[in-house]
Simulated scan of single mutants.
Amino acid sequence: MRNLDVTTLRSFMAVADLGGVTKAAGFLNLTQSAVSMQLKRLEELLGLDLFDRTGRRIALTASGEQLLGYARRMVALNDEAVRRLTDQEFEGEVTIGIPHDILYPSIPNVLKKMRATYPRLKVNVVNENTHQLLPNFEKGMYDLILTTEPTQSGDTLCALPLVWIGSPGGACWRRRPLQIAQSRNCSFRPRMIGVLDEQGVDWESAVDTGSDRSIEVTVAADLAVSAMIEGTEPAQLEVIDHGGTLPDIGMQYINMYGGEAVKGEGVTAMADLVRQAFREMGAQAKAHAVTHLKSAS
């Protein structure tokens, strides 16, 4: 009887999930040669080719894909048995990067659920914009990131509309030139300016800053309008009911990168909770849009 080694299966999962021996070795804190040797022994044990090495990126063969399903179950069962029999609570650390504009309202609830399920797990939440998060994720600085992008990429969780935001009861949006306030680093700014120019709406920048707080204060004082993802606006601001006076800004995709099972139970659990929270948010936005269309007609 031939026996599969759990350590070797972890390496196999890492290579499959991370797309190569180099990344897998870094994640596992092993040398590339050690990981390659484990894969070779696994293939020799089974008498099968598990990887297609003809292309630039390593890919699984049909046999490799079949084994991956078994490997995930075997490793998960091994870890569960060790935890329960040794009475060890899950410990670890997860670092997640999130843009400022989608921290609320979903992320606090996600963190509460993580705390309840994994009380000894340390979760580091880092706030950066999408342009910073993507390259830093590639460098291995994060286990998981969320991005706001105009196109689908990674694991797309939902699509949400960009809307005009102003001071409650404010009138700034009626005046021309339109005063706008958007962080110089915000990915929404070029699109907001683009649609205003396309529609011939005269505008001026009310403030030049990289601070999201400064933007919120300016808008709350009814000195300017801003663009945000619907449902993420802070309590002191509101969606402007402009009746078509301002142009449509379009949709924004919430994409997630990371969360592979190979990175551990904590990362996988975090990814599942984030995925659920934002998909619910997307469903609510769709329901709101349908209601709005019915009331308008």
Rank of each mutant, 00 (worst) to 15 (best):
N3G: 00
L4H: 08
D5I: 13
D5Q: 15
T8C: 04
L9G: 02
M13Q: 12
A14D: 02
V15S: 02
G19Q: 01
G20N: 07
K23E: 10
K23S: 11
T31Y: 11
S33F: 03
A34Q: 13
S36Q: 09
L46H: 05
G47P: 09
L48Y: 07
F51Y: 15
D52I: 02
T54M: 10
R56Y: 05
R56M: 03
R57S: 07
L60Q: 03
A62I: 10
Q66K: 14
L67K: 09
L67E: 09
L67M: 14
G69A: 13
G69M: 09
Y70C: 06
Y70Q: 15
A71Y: 09
V75D: 05
V82C: 08
R84N: 08
L85E: 15
T86Y: 13
E89V: 02
I96M: 13
I98G: 08
H100S: 09
H100A: 12
I102C: 04
L103E: 05
S106C: 09
N109G: 11
K113T: 13
K113Q: 15
M114G: 00
R120N: 15
L121Q: 09
N124M: 07
N124Q: 12
V125F: 10
N129F: 06
L133Y: 01
N136C: 01
E138V: 05
E138T: 07
G140D: 02
M141R: 12
Y142E: 06
Y142S: 01
L144K: 04
L144M: 02
L144F: 03
I145Q: 05
I145K: 00
L146A: 04
T151W: 14
T151V: 12
D155S: 11
L157F: 03
L162R: 04
I165W: 05
S167E: 05
G169P: 10
P177R: 10
I180E: 11
C186G: 12
C186D: 15
F188L: 13
P190I: 11
I193A: 12
I193K: 13
V195M: 09
L196P: 06
Q199S: 15
W203G: 08
S205Y: 00
G210C: 08
G210N: 05
S211D: 14
S211Q: 06
R213Q: 14
I215F: 05
E216Y: 08
A221F: 02
S226M: 02
A227Q: 04
M228N: 07
T232W: 07
P234Y: 03
L237Y: 06
E238R: 09
E238F: 03
H242I: 02
G244T: 05
T245S: 15
G250K: 00
M251R: 05
M251D: 10
Y253N: 12
N255Q: 01
N255I: 04
G259N: 00
E260I: 00
G264D: 11
G264T: 10
T268Q: 14
A269C: 00
D272E: 14
L273N: 03
R275H: 10
Q276E: 15
E280M: 06
A285Y: 02
A287C: 04
A287Y: 05
H288Y: 11
A289G: 06
T291S: 15
L293E: 15
K294S: 06
A296Y: 06
S297Y: 10
S297T: 08
